[in-house]
């Protein structure tokens, strides 16, 4: 009986054992790329809502402060989605015939909730508290990006653990004075590290890296 495989296939077999390592590495690399892509994270993908609310119009255009609507952000873990009544503070008289705002008026008339699709949805195994971040000088735009330039809301950052840790490891790179937290025009100053180190000391900011800080 003649040989099925030619002796040269031995080389092929050796090569494939060696190549399998690279194939596995390539697969892992591809998975890493995919996990960080917008498809998986939703970063930069505008979310369709029942009412196409524009932060750009309300914040950049009208100059409303974040806290006019997100009233809980300084005191609570949850920044808060405003009740329809807050919309109606102005829209009782402005754009009253706009069909785009009919769901808002209907919600106000009937008491039924507007159903917003959550854009920043942290995994349930993560504890997060807005108020402490605000109190320690983490600006809105540090995590949420230039919301004042977003006609529809999207996520600016992945909210992945590696992203949280960027700041938890080196808060001095990101913190700003408390009275600038809600300033959407804040730009990282050239002396950020110097300012940051000073603020870290002044605000008693700890590098909280224990697992149970967030996974409690």
């Amino acid at each position: 009986m003649s040989q099925i495989f030619h002796p040269s296939t031995n080389t092929l077999a050796r090569l494939s054992i060696f190549g399998a390592v690279f194939a596995a590495a390539a697969l892992a690399f591809a998975a890493g790329i995919f996990a960080r892509s917008s498809v998986a994270t939703g970063v930069g993908v505008a979310v369709r809502q029942e009412v196409p609310f524009s932060h750009k119009h309300h914040v950049e255009g009208l100059g409303l402060d974040c806290r006019y609507c997100h009233t809980g952000v300084e005191e609570s873990s949850f920044a808060g989605i405003p009740p329809t009544a807050t919309c109606m503070n102005c829209h009782s008289q402005i754009w009253v015939d706009s069909p785009m705002l009919e769901p808002v008026r209907e919600s106000f008339r009937t008491g039924d909730s507007l159903e917003w699709v959550r854009v920043h949805d942290l995994a349930d195994f993560v504890y997060f508290n807005h108020s402490v971040h605000v109190a320690k000088g983490v600006g809105c735009s540090t995590c949420h990006g230039q919301v004042d330039e977003m006609p529809l809301m999207w996520k600016e950052n992945s909210l992945y653990m590696e992203w949280c840790l960027d700041c938890h490891r080196q808060p001095e790179k990101f913190v700003r004075p408390r009275d600038e937290v809600f300033n959407m025009d804040w730009e990282t100053p050239p002396n950020q590290l110097e300012l940051g180190r000073h603020l870290v000391e002044q605000y008693d900011i700890e590098n909280l890296l224990s697992c149970s800080t967030c996974h409690r």
Binding site: F78, G80, I81, G111, D112, S113, E115, R118, D121, A123, D124, F125
Partner: peptide
């Protein structure tokens, strides 16, 4: 793991008539 059987603030619920 990310969406466990508990409610977040203001989350919708099918359990109650008003959906909250």
């Amino acid at each position: 793991m990310a969406n466990q059987d508990r409610y977040e603030p203001l989350e919708a619920s099918g359990l109650f008539e008003d959906g909250m």
